[in-house]
Design a binder for these strands. Structure first.
Length: 378
DNA sequence: AAGTGGGCCAACCGCCCGAAG
DNA sequence: GCTTCGGGCGGTTGGCCCACT
């Protein structure tokens, strides 16, 4: 693989584009579209390779590009999306209309990183720097949960972001999720159940375990809570879902329930016959696939949402925030168990007991539908 | 005024993936 | 199953600009 064949061709111009070249490219694409990029330079009369033309168009000439500095809202959104997606600039860019991955990447590297550090936040883990440093040489802290010898993690994946990346990649492999996150009426939060918001998996699994089974939905820790607030003042159409959900600290707050048609939570853990990461434990596979993950409001108002819409602000925030007195389901997934499925189950049961002791009003159910019903009664 | 260092950003590089043959 | 090719992505580079000395 390596270089494209076009890159070997001689006499191709490199470096900055001249206005004439830009004009040729724009004229050609507006007339004929780009079609096959490798043929564009020839057809447009350019001494460039197709890749160069593509890049120039996407990053600079495209008419729908928004130029200029990033707004505070955009910056906040980038930070939050980065907390979820890591360095997946193209996916981050897809949530910011008019911005390119390259632009966002540059903005991040030149500006945002610095700002975060100044605020004492590690831009990689989105955690306080002190905490991150402490976690590095102490126990398996939030940022370094991935075990070194874990088969999921290559040496380069010892940092937090690649760990998350691993899970994201796995998620992307499949998207027929049997799992729909339910949102509480109060907080429109789309949980990233598999991660704690610090770009870390909340569970470690043996590869064999992972491929065979994952807990579908820890409905275990459903409790009443009303203390979630957006951390950023995003535009109205963005504020609730993004700020409440993607910011690291609160990532695990959510409600999960399986899709009724594909049901699933048995003992809180489900054996999956197909792609384990599709089991819904990380329903945000839709982050990349734009498929039909449905974010549902629990209770009388149930609105189906696509994750993409969710991120882009289609979520009916006002509705979600109206019912301040209704319980918020929480799904706090602690990183606790070691690698085995069995231990996870044991932990699940033990946590249930603990939660019952401390929160008598907690609703537990192995069946998400029952959970929903229970919520309706709260 | 000249030199220097840093920031920004457009563009390139190397790699991956999927489709096609 | 393999090779080739095109598209795409993330990381990196190089050049321009500007502030500072």
């Amino acid at each position: 693989m390596g270089k494209h064949s076009c890159c070997y061709k001689q006499k191709l111009r490199k470096g900055l584009w001249s206005p004439e070249e830009d004009e040729k490219l724009v004229n050609h694409i507006t007339k004929y579209g780009h079609g096959c990029w490798s043929s564009v330079p020839k057809q447009a009369g350019l001494q460039r390779c197709g890749k160069s033309c593509r890049l120039r168009w996407i990053n600079y000439l495209r008419p729908d590009l928004k130029r200029g500095t990033f707004s505070d809202e955009e910056e906040n959104l980038i930070v939050e999306l980065h907390a979820v997606l890591g360095n997946r600039w193209s996916q981050i860019a897809s949530r910011l209309p008019g911005r390119t991955d390259n632009e966002i990447k540059n903005f991040w590297n030149s500006c945002v990183k610095k700002k975060l550090r100044q605020r004492g936040i590690d831009p990689n883990t989105h955690k306080p720097i002190a905490e991150t440093e402490a976690g590095e040489d102490k126990d398996i802290g939030c940022g370094e949960r991935a075990s070194v010898d874990h088969p999921m993690h290559s040496p380069e994946q010892n940092s937090a972001a690649p760990t998350k990346r691993f899970f994201q990649d796995e998620l992307i492999k499949g998207h027929e999720s049997s799992f729909s996150p339910h949102l509480s009426n109060q907080m429109s939060f789309f949980s990233l159940a598999g991660f704690d918001g610090c770009a870390n998996p909340l569970w470690d699994f043996n590869c064999s375990t992972t491929s065979a089974a994952l807990p579908t939905c820890p409905t275990t820790f459903i409790s009443s809570s009303m203390d979630l607030k957006p951390k950023f003042n995003l535009p109205p159409h963005n504020s609730a879902p993004i700020s409440a959900g993607i910011n690291g600290v609160q990532l695990s707050d959510a409600v999960y329930s399986s899709n009724s048609s594909q049901s699933s939570i048995n003992s809180g853990i489900e054996l999956q016959s197909s792609n384990s990461f599709d089991s819904g434990i990380f329903p945000w596979s839709e982050l990349t696939q734009e498929k039909d993950a449905q974010v549902q409001l629990v209770g009388e108002e149930q609105d189906d949402l696509k994750w993409s819409e969710y991120l882009q602000g289609a979520f009916p925030v006002a509705t979600a925030m109206q019912n301040q007195n209704q319980s918020l389901l929480r799904c706090d997934i602690k990183q606790d168990t070691q690698t085995s499925f069995t231990s996870l189950l044991a932990w699940h049961q033990s946590e249930q007991e603990q939660q019952l002791l401390h929160y008598p009003d907690i609703i537990y159910s192995k069946d998400p539908q029952i959970v929903s019903v229970g919520l309706g009664q709260v």
